[in-house]
Amino acid sequence: MSDSRAVLHDRHGPVDAELPLERAPYEALVTAVLAWQDPDLTPRDYEQIALQLTGHARTVASDVQRHAAALPKNDGRGALAEVVLREAADRLSQPLQGTVLCAKTRARLVRALYERLDRLTADRPEPQ
């Protein structure tokens, strides 16, 4: 057996650019996190949830960026997407914490990114 492994990673992104997002599980997680009233979880649990939401937020942000870049320069949706992406980058640069607030902040970010993605893709015709 060989010890060598091949890792598929394309830092320019086209490999996974057309793969659909696993949206439903993350939307359910966002809904659950934002509905928390007084959860009784450990700091490590909150951190793990925030970590999951962070990774997904980065994926959705990449998709938003790709769709915004494909718009004509005079399309206002692109400018709005850039505002959301700047705010996302700012929030994602904050360190993870094992708190309810951190998890809820990441959940709100995922929700905002999906809202922007939906607006960017709303008028696009479905692929044949």
Rank of each mutant, 00 (worst) to 15 (best):
K73H: 11
V7F: 11
D38G: 14
R124I: 12
Q65W: 08
K104F: 03
I49Q: 05
M1E: 07
L120F: 00
L53H: 02
L53M: 03
A122V: 15
R116A: 10
N74A: 13
R119F: 10
A107Q: 03
Y114E: 06
P39S: 04
G55V: 02
V30S: 04
G98K: 06
R11C: 11
R77W: 00
G76A: 09
A69C: 04
T42D: 10
E126S: 13
P95K: 04
G13Q: 00
L53Y: 01
L85G: 01
L101F: 09
D75Q: 02
E27K: 15
P95G: 05
D45K: 03
A24S: 11
E27N: 12
N74G: 07
R44K: 12
D75A: 02
H56W: 04
V33S: 03
N74H: 10
V64E: 02
G55I: 03
D75F: 00
D118Y: 06
L41G: 05
L85D: 02
Q52R: 15
Q65G: 13
S2M: 09
A28T: 11
A24M: 10
P20V: 06
P125Y: 09
L85I: 00
G78W: 00
L113R: 06
T59D: 08
R111P: 08
G78F: 00
L117H: 03
L117N: 04
L96V: 04
V84L: 04
D63V: 14
D10F: 00
I49P: 04
E47N: 13
P20F: 04
L34V: 04
L8S: 07
R124G: 12
R116E: 07
A103E: 02
L51D: 15
A50Y: 02
R58Q: 12
V110S: 05
V100N: 11
T121E: 02
Q52E: 14
P20R: 11
